[in-house]
């Protein structure tokens, strides 16, 4: 009797485990259930923003802490003729356009950006996949550009347009103004004391240190200030948010 019931119990557990798996997959396909799961993003965002003083700095490291090799991920070369031509002349003709809700929309050449005050920071890059690399970044603090172009009061988000395409779509990302004005948010053009390599986003890449790597847009060509993300791409605020279920807030 005991043996049979024990066997039944184990069979039952196996059937239970099997139906749990297919049940999870069915739930995973349900849009309504995905919305429930995604509510954790709101909780993460609210709590993580509340725990700091909102301008809290990410950890900075020493030269001795640098990763021997800074791993590249995502697009390693935009591969277009325009990009190759620009790279051939060390991006001398690269322009960063500030558009949208600015009182003085304007554009900057790479040289003009390099003539502005710079910030150098050694920070840890955390990829959503789980790996980390420590690198030294030099670039223009974004808040300087936002002040020069006079961001309008209606602006709520900053959208970063990029020169690379993934799966045929242009890469883009967006951040809110709190991250936009954060002192460690810079448009970097140097990595570890050298001009930014192509695989890491040359000539300009966003550093938004309190979020995961996919927020750090590479090959940046423009910053668009908007009141809402609804009209950009598919409206979710970034390439990975549009094509998969990645969260707009990537603080964890």
């Amino acid at each position: 009797m005991t043996i049979i019931t024990r066997r039944k119990l184990i069979t039952g557990a196996a059937i239970g485990a099997g139906s749990l798996l297919s049940g999870c997959d069915a739930l995973n396909r349900s849009a309504a259930f995905q919305d429930v799961l995604a509510s954790a993003e709101t909780a993460n965002f609210t709590v993580q923003r509340a725990l700091g003083d909102r301008m809290e700095l990410a950890s900075e490291y020493r030269i001795a802490d640098l990763s021997p090799k800074f791993r590249a991920n995502g697009t390693r070369d935009p591969g277009t003729a325009d990009y190759a031509a620009s790279a051939a002349q060390s991006f001398a003709n690269w322009e960063l356009r500030l558009t949208g809700l600015f009182a003085k929309p304007q554009q900057f050449s790479l040289a003009a950006l390099q003539a502005l005050p710079q910030r150098t920071q050694i920070t840890r890059h955390d990829c959503v996949e789980g790996w980390s690399a420590i690198g030294q970044w030099t670039g223009v603090p974004l808040n300087i550009l936002l002040d020069l172009a006079q961001l309008k009061k209606e602006a709520q988000f900053l959208v970063f347009h990029c020169a690379d395409r993934l799966g045929g779509r242009p890469y883009y990302e967006s951040i809110d103004l709190l991250d936009g004005f954060h002192p460690q948010t810079i448009l970097a053009h140097r990595l570890n004391g050298e001009p930014l390599p192509i695989e890491n986003g040359a000539p300009l890449r966003l550093r938004v240190e309190r979020q995961l790597g996919y927020k750090h847009a590479k090959y940046v060509t423009g910053i668009e200030a908007v009141a809402s993300l609804a009209g950009i791409g598919e409206g979710k605020g970034g390439y990975w948010q549009d094509v998969a279920n990645y969260e707009w807030y990537a603080g964890i």
Binding site: L21, C24, D25, N28, Q34, S39, A40, E41, N245, I252
Partner: peptide
Amino acid sequence: TIPSHYSLADGRRWHFFFAW
């Protein structure tokens, strides 16, 4: 794994929701 196919984005959603 959940889901039974590879999806980092979906895996993260499940993980953070149930982590709360």
